[in-house]
Design a protein around this nucleic acid. Structure first.
Lengths: 184, 184
DNA sequence: ATCGACATGTAATCAGTTACATGATTTT
DNA sequence: AAAATCATGTAACTGATTACATGTCGAT
């Protein structure tokens, strides 16, 4: 049972999903390709943490709807009680920022402008999602609601995106004001 | 040449390091164990992106000090010009938050209190680092300074840590006020 | 006396990505 | 006519972690 397995269980505890749906829903906090998810779902089923029903469709490919089992929910609950491991972040952008003194000011500014553009698009998407949840769920801020976690995670992502943009603008202002001596 | 290879080059472009030092310095934006770093340094050396000098020590184990080569710096500069891939974040804490409705309020609060404690310790460490850079480097906000990137990355991490703490406190306030009906 | 810092490496395993494979329907 | 969405899977490879291996010095 690895972290991804628990991420799948956490998703399925809230609502039943196909592997295809899980791949997309998981992007919120644990990126994984379908090639990793399908075999893992099969493994979780062999170990009786999840089960599926096969649904035949005519206009679309057939699908497997997965549900969490009693055993799966118990396992998940027990896992929540042990302390989470430290987060891992791997971001190529930061490596480029680290080495930015090797570049010229133009490329430096471009890098940050692109980053801002990326997070502004993210912001828009996240705000839409948040509004949608607020409309659909009667009380997403009641922690007994299965949507509580999902809701606050979206809010977190929005807040952090906004902070990231603020930081980018701050760096850009430094890039504009401070550098009279540009080697390039 | 993978992302980690460029992270190593970016580090070595700023200053020469041993593999041991790189392992620790890298934590700032790309976590990797020494078992991944040592073989990769050897590979980068075979490909002439870095070179090392062997230093014999008496009170400590001997070490290899790595430096970036001309070829390495050229390769790194070229890489900065291509667009960074999207960041990957994998954080078990968020999976637990997603599934928090399955737990009782006590555990929920504990989870967020622990998270706050973790980031407060981080904050302290980061602020110390930032102060140190401000003392040591005459003008860290000049983008021609090899410490520019390092400096702004520390500031970013501090800002994001503060935002994370604010968000945790917000969730905690929800956990306190909103839940009259607790199943546990 | 035990633990952490310094320092480098390999082997085995696990996790994650890319590519291969198929195929209907809907949108551009 | 081409691309995107839906839908599931396997194979090959690359990236990352854990465990094995060694050894001194200084601090507690």
């Amino acid at each position: 049972m690895n972290s991804l397995a628990f991420a799948l269980l956490a998703m399925l505890a809230r609502k039943e999903c196909t592997g295809y749906e899980l791949t997309k829903l998981l992007e919120l906090f644990w990126q994984a390709k379908h090639s990793q998810i399908y075999p893992l779902l099969a493994k979780l089923e062999r170990e009786e943490y999840v089960m599926h029903t096969y649904v035949v469709q005519k206009k679309k490919p057939d699908k497997k709807i997965y549900r969490i089992t009693e055993k799966g929910e118990k396992r998940l609950k027990k896992w929540i009680d042990i302390d989470p491991v430290v987060p891992v972040v791997r971001d190529e952008f930061l490596t480029k920022v680290y080495a930015i003194w090797l570049t010229d000011r133009l490329r430096a500014k471009e890098l940050f402008h692109q980053r801002i553009a990326f997070f502004e698009k993210e912001l828009e998407r996240l705000n839409q999602k948040i509004e949608l949840i607020e409309q659909e769920i009667e009380d997403p801020l009641n922690m007994n609601s299965p949507s509580f976690g999902r809701y606050v995670i979206y809010v977190r992502k929005r807040d952090l995106s906004e902070e990231e943009i603020r930081w980018c603008r701050w760096v850009l202002s430094m890039l504009d004001h401070k550098n009279s001596s540009d080697r390039a």
